[in-house]
């Protein structure tokens, strides 16, 4: 599938932003000062960025707790993302959600919430509303390999299919649901094959290959916008860090992360391909790398300096109406 150089530059830029942001978060978290838990997305950039390259204004992306990457990919203000992770005023959710609940209605990003896989059910709602509105908008729900085995996800896939809702269900199978291997927990091992049971197309792609992800999502989004119903995509990938920061990851085979960083890394592969095929020039990519390095410094400096939300606002934003 042809993509414009502008599109390719944007894709690289976003992937670089996510990578550097997460690598930095890994260090900052270890130094203390980041509240709560964080679930880092480093390694999986091509997945979220490949999805978001196909989304328009009005579309909704439903996030998971591994929220930083998709939030940046969808175009949420990275400064507000950082502040929210630090639970500061000026964060996307005014410091009330934190790392796992990045939510920005303005950029079409819906935050993760508790139940694993619940985003797929919420996505049915966004898709239903989009169908009733008739403007051609769609919803894409991200879900992990763990979510594939959560009951609500089957219910949501079933409903999306019987009503031909404009929904794309994107399983980011990163090999582990917390500390449990995906293959172990998933009957049939291949999540994408479950699509057939729900009468929708299912595809599997290499989640570290930006171009493969882009193409698969492109077709699914086309289907949805055309009113042909939902699709399922399984993007196989690996995260470079633990389920959460502090996870010793002893459940992973030794050397796995190094192997992926060396031979399967999405940024390296993207760079190789675009240069080899004369789609972009090396100097453009280097410039982006430099720019992002500075940006990330600035983002973290601002986030750490931002004030916490005011005590007096504790009870604000519970209810929308005073009835």
């Amino acid at each position: 599938m042809e993509q414009s150089s502008e599109g390719l530059l944007t894709a690289y830029r976003k992937m670089r932003m996510i990578r550097d942001f997460e690598d930095r978060m890994h260090i900052e978290f270890a130094n203390g000062g980041v509240p709560g838990f964080v679930h880092l997305y480093a390694g999986q950039e091509a997945s979220a960025v490949g999805v978001c390259a196909n989304l328009a204004e009005g579309d909704v992306l439903l996030n998971t707790h591994r929220a930083h990457g998709p939030a940046i990919a969808r175009g949420a203000d990275i400064f507000a993302v950082a502040k929210e992770i630090y639970c500061r005023d000026g964060g996307l959710c005014r410091g009330r959600g934190g790392s796992a609940h990045l939510h920005d209605v303005a950029s079409g990003l819906w935050g993760a919430n508790s139940g694993v896989g619940s985003g797929v059910a919420l996505g049915c709602g966004a898709a239903l509303a989009a169908r009733n509105a008739g403007a051609g908008s769609i919803a894409v729900a991200l879900a992990g390999d763990g979510a594939a085995n959560q009951g609500v996800v089957s219910e949501a896939m079933n409903m999306a299919s019987i009503w031909k809702l404009p929904l794309v269900i994107m399983f980011e199978n990163n090999g582990y649901a917390e500390a449990t291997g995906a293959d172990y927990a998933t009957a049939g091992k291949d999540i994408y094959k479950r699509a057939a049971a729900f009468d929708m197309p299912g595809t599997v792609v290499d989640g570290h290959d930006y171009f493969a992800v882009y193409d698969a999502v492109n077709e699914a989004v086309r289907r949805a916008r055309a009113g042909e119903g939902p699709s399922l995509i399984e993007a196989k990938q690996r995260r470079y860090y633990g389920h959460f920061e502090g996870d010793a990851q002893t459940y992973r085979p030794k050397g796995e992360v190094e192997e992926y960083r060396k031979n399967k890394d999405c940024l390296k592969r993207f760079r190789r391909k675009v240069i080899a095929e004369n789609l972009l020039r090396e100097v453009q990519l280097d410039a982006i790398d430099q720019e992002i390095r500075k940006l990330i410094d600035e983002v973290y400096a601002q986030a750490k300096a931002a004030p916490f939300p005011d005590d007096g606002e504790l009870m604000d934003y519970i209810y929308a109406s005073n009835s």
Binding site: A121, A129, E155, A156
Partner: peptide
């Protein structure tokens, strides 16, 4: 579980 989630998503969408 599915349709309550869907209802919430629809509510959030207007």
């Amino acid at each position: 579980a599915g349709y309550m989630g869907m209802a919430i998503g629809a509510a959030a969408s207007g």
